[in-house]
């Protein structure tokens, strides 16, 4: 399609839309406001993160922004992270306790007395004795 054809085609579509969209003034005004809001938000979005309270104009910002949105974005992840760390720490403690329980019950019922395992020389002596 040449440039001329494209231009003609665009004019044809515009004319068709103008003819077809015969809306009353109230609807047109609402569409205009909505379009302006959409454009406004599109201009703001690429600027990156902003305070939620300022993101929406009017009454909506009271519900979505403020401390509630801040909690969701910052405080909640922090709380979840801390809860996760505490959970892992407790799980490790439980594992160690279970390990100590099993090991101690075996050690304290073993044929050899505790002194045998407290004597650092005994293990070296065992190696020597085993090699005899």
């Amino acid at each position: 399609m040449t440039d001329m054809n494209e231009q003609q085609f665009a004019n044809w579509i515009r004319a068709a839309l103008n003819n077809g969209a015969r809306l009353n003034a109230r609807i047109l005004e609402r569409l205009r406001v909505a379009r302006e809001h959409a454009l406004e938000r599109r201009r703001v979005a690429p600027l990156g993160w902003r305070e939620p309270a300022g993101e929406l104009a009017g009454g909506e910002s009271e519900n979505i922004g403020g401390f509630g949105a801040f909690s969701l974005r910052v405080v909640l992840p922090m709380v979840l992270m801390i809860a996760g760390v505490v959970g892992i720490y407790r799980w490790q403690q439980e594992q160690r306790a279970a390990e100590a329980e099993q090991l101690d019950s075996q050690l304290l019922t073993d044929d050899l007395p505790i002194d045998a395992y407290l004597d650092r020389g005994f293990e070296a002596w065992l190696k020597k004795a085993a090699n005899r």
Partner: peptide, 11 residues
């Protein structure tokens, strides 16, 4: 701790 370690490595 030492007794447990030795128990692990011996018994």
């Amino acid at each position: 701790w030492q007794a447990r370690e030795h128990y692990r490595s011996i018994a």
